[in-house]
């Protein structure tokens, strides 16, 4: 049993390794892509708009925004990887098809891919966290824990993106998911302004989605105001991860091994 588990882990890792190897080749370019956008938002809105906003609760706007940017860029990094990149590997390049000719099974591909999406989120989180540290926006050593939270956020949104990919017949399809779900989620999850300014109905709807909960936890960690009870918020992305992972695997199986 332990040996078969370690072999399965090695197979999952081989998928992760393949993606990491490819990423490493263009690391600088990818890094620029994943983190120039969130950084611009942080600087422009945080310092520019922040001057007019003043403080949110007890935080300066740029500190408030920083946590939101970290969470949303973790989501974006994994979402992009799970939509466009995974679809390219599956459909355009038939890479998964070639992997399915080996000892690696479909669940291990899906699992390895989702782990890689979590890794992409972690890379993005670390990059922004580093900038935040330089700008003096990190207020607690607890901010280190933002990294594993970013990973959870990544595997959750990676799995959700994989559901979309598993049903998709073209790249165009992804636009619906991004426009109808991801973008509204960024706007309504307490990234740019506090949840308290949302109407009750909208706030409730937003609470049913994972990003809001990730933002709450990241903000609590960044400002050192975290309490144990906040970890309950992590159950929402965890639940989404499990359900999405299951649906994605079922649908990929129908699609690739019918």
């Amino acid at each position: 049993m332990p040996e078969s588990v370690s072999l399965a882990a090695a197979r999952v890792f081989s998928i992760w390794y393949r993606n990491a190897l490819v990423w490493r080749k263009s690391a600088l370019r990818s890094l620029l892509g994943t983190f120039s956008d969130p950084l611009l938002y942080l600087l422009a809105f945080g310092y520019g708009l922040g001057r007019f906003v003043g403080e949110v609760g007890e935080l300066t706007y740029v500190v408030f925004l920083c946590s939101g940017i970290i969470a949303s860029s973790a989501m974006n990094a994994a979402t992009f990887e799970g939509l466009y990149m995974a679809y390219t590997r599956m459909e355009t390049n038939k890479t998964w098809e070639s992997i399915l000719s080996t000892s690696v099974g479909l669940p291990e591909i899906v699992f390895g891919e989702i782990l890689w999406m979590g890794t992409k989120s972690v890379i993005s989180v670390i990059a922004i966290l580093g900038v935040a540290l330089l700008l003096g926006l990190v207020q607690s050593w607890m901010a280190v824990l933002v990294i594993p939270v970013g990973f959870l956020c990544g595997i959750c949104f990676g799995a959700m993106a994989m559901v979309v990919t598993s049903y998709s017949r073209s790249y165009e399809f992804f636009l619906y998911y991004v426009t109808l779900l991801i973008t509204p989620m960024i706007l309504l999850s307490g990234v740019f302004f506090p949840l308290s300014s949302l109407p009750d109905g909208v706030r409730l709807a937003s609470a049913a989605l994972p990003l809001q909960h990730v933002v709450i936890v990241v903000r609590a960690l960044m400002t050192g105001s975290v309490e144990l009870v906040d970890s309950v918020h992590l159950l929402v992305p965890l639940l989404f991860l499990l359900i999405a992972g299951f649906i994605a695997l079922t649908q990929f199986r129908k699609r690739l091994q019918n």
Binding site: L7, R11, S14, Y17, R18, L21, I99, S103
Partner: peptide
């Protein structure tokens, strides 16, 4: 190389 790793 990568293909070999798929076989462990």
């Amino acid at each position: 190389f990568v293909y070999g790793r798929y076989f462990g």
